[in-house]
Each structure stands twice: as C-alpha cells, then as structure tokens.
Design a protein around this nucleic acid. Sequence first.
DNA 1: CCCTGGGATTGAATTGTTTCAATCCGTCCG
DNA 2: CGGACGGATTGAAACAATTCAATCCCAGGG
Lengths: 336, 336
Amino acid sequence: MAGIKDVARQAGVSVGTVSNVINRPEAVLPDTRARVLAAIEELGYVRSESARQLRAGRSRIMALLVLDMGNPFFVDIARGAERAAREAGLGVMVCNSGQSQEEEAEYLGLFAEQRVCGVLVTPADATGGNLEAFARHRIPYVLVDRVASGTDTCAVSVDDVRGGMLAVGHLVSAGHRSVAYVSGPGDLHQIRDRRQGALAALAEAGLGPESLVEIPSDRLDVAAGRDAGARLLGLVPRPTAVFCANDLLALGVLQSLYAAGVRVPQDVAIVGYDDIEFAAAAAVPLTSVRQPAVVMGKMAAELLLEEADDEGGSHRHRSVVLQPELVVRASSAAPR
Amino acid sequence: MAGIKDVARQAGVSVGTVSNVINRPEAVLPDTRARVLAAIEELGYVRSESARQLRAGRSRIMALLVLDMGNPFFVDIARGAERAAREAGLGVMVCNSGQSQEEEAEYLGLFAEQRVCGVLVTPADATGGNLEAFARHRIPYVLVDRVASGTDTCAVSVDDVRGGMLAVGHLVSAGHRSVAYVSGPGDLHQIRDRRQGALAALAEAGLGPESLVEIPSDRLDVAAGRDAGARLLGLVPRPTAVFCANDLLALGVLQSLYAAGVRVPQDVAIVGYDDIEFAAAAAVPLTSVRQPAVVMGKMAAELLLEEADDEGGSHRHRSVVLQPELVVRASSAAPR
DNA sequence: CCCTGGGATTGAATTGTTTCAATCCGTCCG
DNA sequence: CGGACGGATTGAAACAATTCAATCCCAGGG
C-alpha cells in the first residue's frame, strides 16, 4: 500500500510537503499542491491513521460502553453521543458489556490499548471497581446514566428516585394499594433508586414497604419480563399493578399477562421505564417514565470532549442530573 | 505514559525481551518473565495498539456499516457479527450510514484510514458505487443483506423475493384481493425484491399488479409508518391488507390505524418484515417474515475472516442466501 | 580443554506519519 | 551590491511497537 514517501517520490517533493498538502494546504504553493494531489490520486494513497495516532499519542475515537444495545434506550444514548462526537470530528466505538463486569474490564482494557480519547460508560456494577482501575491510565471518562460517587468524575444521569416516585405515585393515586416491582440486577444503581422512589411514593400515601412486592430478575430484557409475568400470575394475593424497571421487562410482562387472559389495565395495571419507541406500540400502549436518552448521550459526550480537550487543567468535574417525565397511556388505570 | 522501553529499563532487560514476554511468554525464562511482569504492573504499562498496528499494517478491528441501529434487525446482525469476531480476537466497530450515500462514503473512507481488517456492509444504494471505489484499497468486504452483483465479492442475504411472496401469499390465501405495500427508499434492493415477491404471489392467485397499491416512504422507521398509515386511511377504496417493508413501518401503521379506530385484523390485516422482538409485543401481535439476522451477521463475519486470513489467494468469493420464514400472529386474518 | 548446539537475550531496523529547525531562493531595502 | 526578510520546502527526529539476525552463555560431547 502506498505511503507518504511514495507520494513524495511520485510528485517530486519531500515527505514534509506531502504532509503539509494534507494538513495545511494553504501553506503550499498551488502548483506544488496540485502535483501532490495528482500523485495521491494516482497512487490511491490513504493516510494511515495508526501512524498518525502513534505520533499524536491518542486516537480520534471515543468509546461508548453500554449495558445492552438490544435496549433501544441505549441506542438513543449512542445516537446522542455519536452526534456530538461527529461534530468534533471524532468517531465513536460502541460496545456492549452485557452487564458483565468481566466483559466491562475486557473492553476497558481494549480502550486503554487503543488510547481512545475518552470513554463514556454505564458501569455494570454499583461499586465501579473496574473504573477505579481504569482511572490509572489517565484516560478521561464520563459516567452515563449513573451518578458520580465522588467529585473526581463527570457524570450525566436521570433522577431515578424521582422516576420511581412518578411511576408508583401515579399508580397509587389511581387507587392501587399493592404494587409489584419487577426489578433487575440488584447491583445496578438505577434499579435500587427506582425502588427507593417507589417506596417513597407509597409512604407518601401512608403505605408501608410491604405494599411493594418485589419480583427479582437477573436480566433486563423481554424474555426476563415474560418470566416475571409468569411469576406475577402465581402471587396470592395478586398485586393490582406492576412497576417494571424498564420497558423491555414491561413488554414481556404484558405479553405474559395477555397470553394468560389477564386484562390490562382492568385486572393489572403496568408502568414501564425509559419510554422507548416501542412502548407506545405495545399490545396495550404502555405508560412509561420517559428519560431524555439522546440528550444524555449528547451531554455526556460534550462533557468528555471538554475534559479531553482541556490542556491547562482548568476542567472541573461536573454531575448533570436530568429529570424524567411520566407518560400516561392505556396500560395504567384505576383498578375495578 | 510508560512505553516498552521504560519497562525494559525497569526490569533490566531489552525491549525485545519485553515484547516476547507479552507475545510469546513461553520463550522467556520464568524469572525473567516475572521480573518483566512486575515492571509492567509497577509502571502501569499498556501496550499501544497504534504502534502495533503500524508495524502489522492492519488493525484488529472489523467494521460493520448498517443502515440504522435503531432497527433491532440490524442490532441482531451486529450481535452475530460481534460474536464471530470476538472468537477470532477481533473488535467490531459499528457504524450507521442512515441510508445516506454521503455518510456511507465518509465511513468507508474512515475505515480505509483505520486499515480495518475488513468491512461488513449493507449498502445504502442499489448500485454500490461507493463500494466500487472502496475495492481499490484492497480491504476485503462482505455484503450483508444484499446479493452480490458479480462474483468479486462475498455476500450473505435472505431471499427477499421469497419473503415478499410468503407475506402476500398468506394474505391472498386469507381472501384479500387488494393489498397495500408500504415500501421504503426505492434504491434499496430489499424493498424492490419484496415488491417483486408480492407481485408474484398476486399473479399466482390470478391477480394483476393493480392489486398491489404502493404507499411509498423515504424512511424505514416507526414515524414513517405512522405517516404511511395516515395515507392508507385516505385511500378509496381502501385495501383490506397491508404488507410493510419492515416491522418498524408496520408498527407505525398499526399505531395509526389503532388511533383512527380501524380494527386490525378485522378491517385491515397487517404483515410486517424482519420479525423483530417487538413485533410479538405490538398492540396487535404482528404477523411478520422472520429473517435469521443473528446468523446472517455471524456468517458474514466468518466469510470476511476467511477472506482476510487468506494469504495464498485460495479464497473464492461466495454468496450465501438464507431463507425467510413466515410467522403468523393476530394482525393478519381473513377479511369479513 | 575445545568445540558445538541450542535456548535466551539483545539491539538495530522497520513501519508511516507529524513536526520543526534548517535551508533555499527570490525580493526588497539600504 | 550586500544583507535582511519571509515564504516554500526539506530532511531528520520522534512516536512505540515487532521482528530477526546476531550474540551470549552454558552444557555436553569429543
């Protein structure tokens, strides 16, 4: 494959001039430039990003590590991040940790080797042990959909406690007195905060924690939702409402109930979380807590860019907390 | 940041030995190895992928360029590809062309600069002009969800003509005599082939092309489906069935009809395409043509790896055509 | 005791770019 | 006419790894 040297020889100039034509065209005489461009075209020269990177010390790629790209919520985050990165002339490498700490560690290692200019990450665990180790590499990172534990990191999150409160508050005010909570992996902050919000909403209505029946689940996808739905059907007495930790679970629960002939919302009301595009198109359009996912991705990327571009150490870490919003649809209503 | 030289100095060995410890540990005496590993640990050394790549001439990353990551169909393809790549120790860089030829060209340029070891691509246009130009770089690529136009490329696709035939054949045999086809961008092969299959199914039942009412759409997402649904409602006489070029469109159409009080399937039957996970969870569970997306991604990646690993020129390009499968659900049934 | 064989280690060459001090050359001014 | 200036161009250093021929050293055999 042709390199800058071949181009230089072909055009009868030095390598430095070729480099200038590519990076600072205005600093080269028009006819020299033309000659070089002709040579580039003729040889099909493409500059080597790795050589560039080697010299620059870091790549022009930003990494995004999410829990699950099968969840449209994360796809939206990726969209927002990509948009912001693109504006800064950077590429985005999107990876899935699948909520596994091992995969997370593996990917973080990969990012360090790639010398990415920064990492956006939704941690797979509450403690953030992997990130602690990662911090050593001096590669900036921003927490996404997660509050910062200290002041040594930027973070963008949505108020999950408030989200849980909105969801269960809505159910309680519709008359429900017993609510199931289909949760996810207990080591995810989001899950715990939403529960806390749910409990707060119940408490506000004078109901104790026994009014929240937890149906645990180790994954956060539609299949897990179907399982949870089956378990819900077996509960005696059966709660009249379900709050699901995300929309995928909710869609699964809905499917399960539907198949068993349980009517939604007449027999059981359902509220999901994230308000993914498919929530509105569900068997019964799903009430859900909307999160500004695209904005979150965009802001996270912008914070990261600010930190990465910062030469003088003037960057101050910031935590942005966005507000969720309840979107009421057919799946939630007063019990009979 | 510490380099291999720093490690060598710290451990009191040469750079070559450090390299050996990393890449061929068995070729180094145990205590030397231990000393080097200790130095690596102490300095927090992380090998530079760019330097590695520069020497190797190509990166250890495979690119995947799809039309839209917001479509779960492509997410499944990505999953399959990622799995295969991972087994070969490669990373995958997933990018969206958004059906734009400009973005496609831009990304292909980026891939060339990155010297990726290969590209999996779902072309944004029928002619494949961008790929023709790309072929010049001698970077192997495999067409995904698209048949190869010649024998100079590997390709993995699903028989879209047959898919269209299955979908419309099903509708016709349920008694429908007028079917709307909500299509997408006309320069996509998939869209045209599915139409052709639809026409073939009609012809088989003795119906002419006038029985297929095309509702064009320039995008392939839920919002476009809603628009198409609105246009469908305005048609006189209104077709009794709709075949949608993909499930996102179908879900949008469904939402639209639902909102207008048109009953599915009693008034209008709907058949989608792709059988994404959300099709089963739709307002009315969606009849759809299932495509083996994960398998397609996996096979494409495997073909690419075979071509990329081929030193002796023994690789022969292959086209794999997979078969779609009709999944009947509630959204399709005989008209009154 | 010398030589040989072979495993361990070395160190220089190589990869393709960017950057920057040095050089070149033509012009302008004194 | 000489010197200074400035824009264009040059060429070598630096980046961080891999690779491989050369070297080193030790054991075993003659």
